[in-house]
C-alpha cells in the first residue's frame, strides 16, 4: 500500500514537473488565431524612432534590440509579440491590446529553467484591462511570484511596452489617415 502511494506521488510529481517546464507554449499562428479568430490578420511595423527609443529605455530599462517591431491589427485591436530577457534568456510574450487596454497576455515561449509559472492564467489574468497611466506606467500593480521575480518583471515590462507601442501605432495610423 505504502509502495503504491509512493509510486503515485512520484508519478504526480513527474507530471507536475513535465507540465511546468520551459518550452514553446503557443506558436504565432495559434496566438493570432486566439486573438483575432483567424491566422492571417493584416500586419504592419512600427519603426523605432527617437521618441520610441527614449520611451522604451524608460519602460524596459534598455533600448529595443530591433529597429522595427511587427504587429497585427484588426479594427481597434492590435497584437504584439515581444521578447524580453528574464534573467539571461529572452521570454516571448504575446500581448493583445484593444481600445488602449490589454485584452490578454500570453507567454508564448520560455527558455530559462526557472520562472515558467508566469505562463499560467492565475498570473497572466492580472494584465487584463490594464491601461497606461498619464505617467506611462501600468494602471495597476502586478503581484509577484516567489522564485519568478525576474520573469514577472519581464512580463510587466513587456505589457507596459505593448501599451506604449499600441498608443504610438494608433497615433501614427491616425496621422497617416488624416494628413494636415
Amino acid at each position: 500500500m505504502l509502495r503504491r502511494a509512493a509510486f503515485a506521488l512520484l508519478l504526480a510529481s513527474a507530471v507536475a514537473i513535465a507540465a511546468g517546464e520551459a518550452g514553446r507554449y503557443q506558436t504565432r499562428a495559434e496566438f493570432l488565431l486566439e486573438s483575432f479568430g483567424h491566422e492571417n490578420p493584416p500586419s504592419d511595423v512600427v519603426w523605432i524612432d527617437e521618441e520610441l527609443r527614449a520611451t522604451a529605455a524608460k519602460v524596459l530599462g534598455h533600448a529595443p534590440e530591433m529597429l522595427r517591431i511587427r504587429y497585427w491589427h484588426d479594427g481597434a485591436r492590435t497584437a504584439w509579440i515581444l521578447d524580453e530577457i528574464g534573467k539571461e534568456q529572452p521570454i516571448t510574450f504575446g500581448v493583445v491590446v484593444e481600445n488602449a487596454a490589454i485584452r490578454h497576455l500570453r507567454v508564448m515561449q520560455f527558455r530559462e529553467s526557472r520562472g515558467w509559472e508566469i505562463r499560467y492564467p492565475f498570473f497572466t489574468d492580472q494584465f487584463s484591462q490594464l491601461r497606461l497611466t498619464d505617467s506611462g506606467t501600468l494602471s495597476h500593480g502586478i503581484d509577484a511570484i516567489s522564485g519568478a521575480t525576474l520573469s514577472v518583471k519581464a512580463a510587466t515590462r513587456s505589457a507596459n511596452f505593448a501599451l506604449v507601442l499600441d498608443d504610438y501605432a494608433r497615433r501614427t495610423r491616425r496621422n497617416a489617415d488624416n494628413p494636415r
Partner: peptide, 14 residues
C-alpha cells in the same frame, strides 16, 4: 539586419 548589421527584425515563421 541593415547592411551595417543593425538588427531590424527578428521573425519566427510557422
Amino acid at each position: 539586419t541593415s547592411s551595417a548589421a543593425e538588427l531590424i527584425e527578428r521573425y519566427a515563421p510557422d
